[in-house]
């Protein structure tokens, strides 16, 4: 599915889920926001479209990357940390599917969703069972709390393995970028230092005034030290700029009865 379709689906599903009244008039959507969400959206009615021409014609909000309503929906949905339950008829086993949002950031960026399912009886990674249906949690159901932490750790280890290739590639690329920057910016300082070094030799070979040569040497060495210090500062700045962060955020969970 392309991104425009994904955005449209998320937007409309969101409004349906919160029980908003939606009227679609040839791609022009009039949405009556339920009371509970009016404060969040700061209004009771929203007129939106996913079509540029309709937006132009009706002067309404076009839902595309950058639109405010889309941002509000994403912010709302991504801040919930929801847990839902799915089941097969006559289920005897329990598993937890952990959803991680992996965020690799540095000068470049990569993010991806990973989902890992762990059977909490035998603490094994399993395939996500087919044909599951959403249910309300049975009243007599109890999740053994002692098994939550170990199953989470198994999921994390699996996540690390699943993402290790991606991680190595990201680190390699970050290192290449860092080295390129380093070469580019540091060579200027090395050239300057070399030139100053050479100028001392030149001064020594062209002047007979020992005092002047001595003074020149001191001054130039001071200058070189200054450049060396600046160079080392720059390396630190570059290291900070290129520093790589890996965040493995747990963003949602499913309890699976199968």
């Amino acid at each position: 599915m392309n991104i425009s379709n994904q955005i449209q689906e998320l937007t409309l599903s969101f409004f349906k889920t919160i029980d908003a009244e939606i009227i679609n008039n040839n791609g022009l959507y009039d949405i009556a926001i339920p009371n509970k969400y009016q404060n969040y959206f700061q209004k009771s009615k929203i007129r939106i479209t996913f079509n540029e021409k309709v937006a132009e014609e009706h002067n309404c909000e076009l839902i595309i990357p950058g639109s405010k309503t889309l941002f509000q929906i994403i912010t709302n949905c991504s801040n919930k940390g929801p847990i839902s339950v799915k089941s097969l008829p006559g289920a005897i086993n329990t598993a937890i599917q952990y959803h991680f949002y992996v965020n690799f950031s540095g000068v470049k960026h990569h993010s991806q969703l990973f989902s890992i399912t762990v059977d909490i009886q035998n603490m094994r990674i399993i395939e996500y069972p087919a044909n599951l249906e959403s249910i309300d949690l049975p009243l007599d159901f109890k999740l053994d709390s002692k098994k939550i932490t170990p199953s989470f750790e198994i999921a994390l280890n699996e996540l690390k393995q699943n993402s290790s290739e991606l991680k190595s590639t990201f680190i390699n690329n970050a290192n290449i970028d860092f080295e390129t920057d380093l070469k580019l910016f540091i060579s200027r300082y090395d050239d300057e230092i070399r030139e100053l070094d050479n100028s001392i030799t030149k001064k020594e070979s062209t002047s007979n005034d020992f005092e002047k040569i001595k003074q020149y040497r001191f001054d130039t060495i001071d200058e070189i030290e200054k450049i060396e210090k600046e160079k080392s500062n720059l390396v630190t700045i570059l290291q900070n700029k290129h520093q790589v962060n890996f965040d493995y955020n747990l963003v949602a969970c499913e309890i699976i009865l199968y």
């Binding site: 689906e9 998320l10 599903s13 949905c77 969703l113 963003v251 949602a252």
Partner: peptide, 10 residues
């Protein structure tokens, strides 16, 4: 919706 949101965020 949460999972879709993260997909779009990526």
């Amino acid at each position: 919706l949460t999972l879709q949101s993260y997909q779009i965020l990526s």
